[in-house]
Simulated scan of single mutants.
Amino acid sequence: MLALEATCATLTDSNAKLLAKVTDLESRSRRNNIRIVGLPESIEGPHPSTFFPKLLMEVLGEGVLDSPPECDRAHRSLTDKPKPGQRPRPVIIRVHRYQQKEKIIREARARRGKLQYQGTPIAIYEDYAPEVMEQRYKYREVMAELYNLGLKPALLFPARLSIVSKEGGKKRFSSVAEAKGYIASILLGEHNGFRPPSLDSPYD
Results as ranks from 00 to 15, higher is better:
residue 21 K to H: 13
residue 22 V to Y: 03
residue 23 T to N: 03
residue 24 D to F: 15
residue 24 D to S: 15
residue 25 L to S: 11
residue 25 L to F: 12
residue 26 E to D: 15
residue 26 E to N: 13
residue 27 S to M: 08
residue 27 S to L: 00
residue 28 R to F: 13
residue 29 S to I: 05
residue 31 R to V: 14
residue 32 N to R: 11
residue 34 I to C: 01
residue 34 I to Q: 05
residue 35 R to C: 14
residue 39 L to M: 14
residue 40 P to M: 02
residue 40 P to H: 00
residue 40 P to C: 04
residue 40 P to S: 02
residue 41 E to I: 02
residue 42 S to D: 14
residue 43 I to H: 09
residue 44 E to I: 03
residue 45 G to V: 01
residue 45 G to I: 01
residue 46 P to N: 03
residue 46 P to K: 06
residue 48 P to I: 11
residue 48 P to Q: 09
residue 49 S to D: 08
residue 49 S to F: 00
residue 53 P to K: 00
residue 53 P to R: 05
residue 54 K to V: 08
residue 55 L to R: 07
residue 56 L to Q: 04
residue 57 M to A: 02
residue 57 M to S: 13
residue 58 E to W: 03
residue 58 E to R: 01
residue 58 E to T: 13
residue 59 V to L: 06
residue 59 V to E: 10
residue 59 V to S: 09
residue 60 L to N: 03
residue 62 E to A: 15
residue 63 G to N: 03
residue 66 D to A: 11
residue 66 D to V: 08
residue 67 S to Q: 11
residue 67 S to F: 07
residue 68 P to T: 08
residue 70 E to W: 01
residue 70 E to N: 02
residue 70 E to D: 10
residue 70 E to V: 12
residue 70 E to G: 03
residue 74 A to P: 09
residue 74 A to M: 03
residue 76 R to A: 08
residue 76 R to N: 04
residue 76 R to P: 05
residue 77 S to K: 10
residue 78 L to I: 12
residue 79 T to Q: 15
residue 79 T to L: 15
residue 80 D to M: 14
residue 81 K to P: 07
residue 82 P to S: 05
residue 83 K to T: 11
residue 83 K to F: 02
residue 84 P to T: 04
residue 84 P to A: 09
residue 86 Q to P: 00
residue 88 P to L: 04
